[in-house]
Design a protein around this nucleic acid. Sequence first.
DNA 1: CTAGTGACCCAAC
DNA 2: GGTTGGGCCACTA
Length: 121
Amino acid sequence: MPAQDKSLYPRIYKVVRQVPRGRVASYGQIAEIVGAGCDARMVGYAMAATPEGSDVPWQRIVNREGKISLPGQGGEIQRMRLEAEGVTFGARNRIDMKRFGWAGSDSPEKESPAATQPSLF
DNA sequence: CTAGTGACCCAAC
DNA sequence: GGTTGGGCCACTA
């Protein structure tokens, strides 16, 4: 962890906080919303530097594959917290981005994606 | 200024 | 479906 940025963090945190409960977003998605010289990697930095006591739902941020990118025990914690929010993991610890993927603050979420599940599994 | 790194992403084989 | 390689941006030494 050679980098410890701070200037872009508040910006990224603000976007991450907009992710509704029971929904997940990808790093690239957050980076795109933040724009201004921010990419998926920077989002990863910000998440890594996010204190646990913070109100930032860093657990809702996963990679493009809908999988946990955080290695080690942190990944286990993230998965546990997501399940507690209603996010279900498919095979290989993968999340169905089709249902739980956050379309953005512009898309109105009618109901919990878990409730609209067509019982595939 | 150059080099190295990172909870990533995408195109191509 | 898989792997390979390059690109991306900000930050630190």
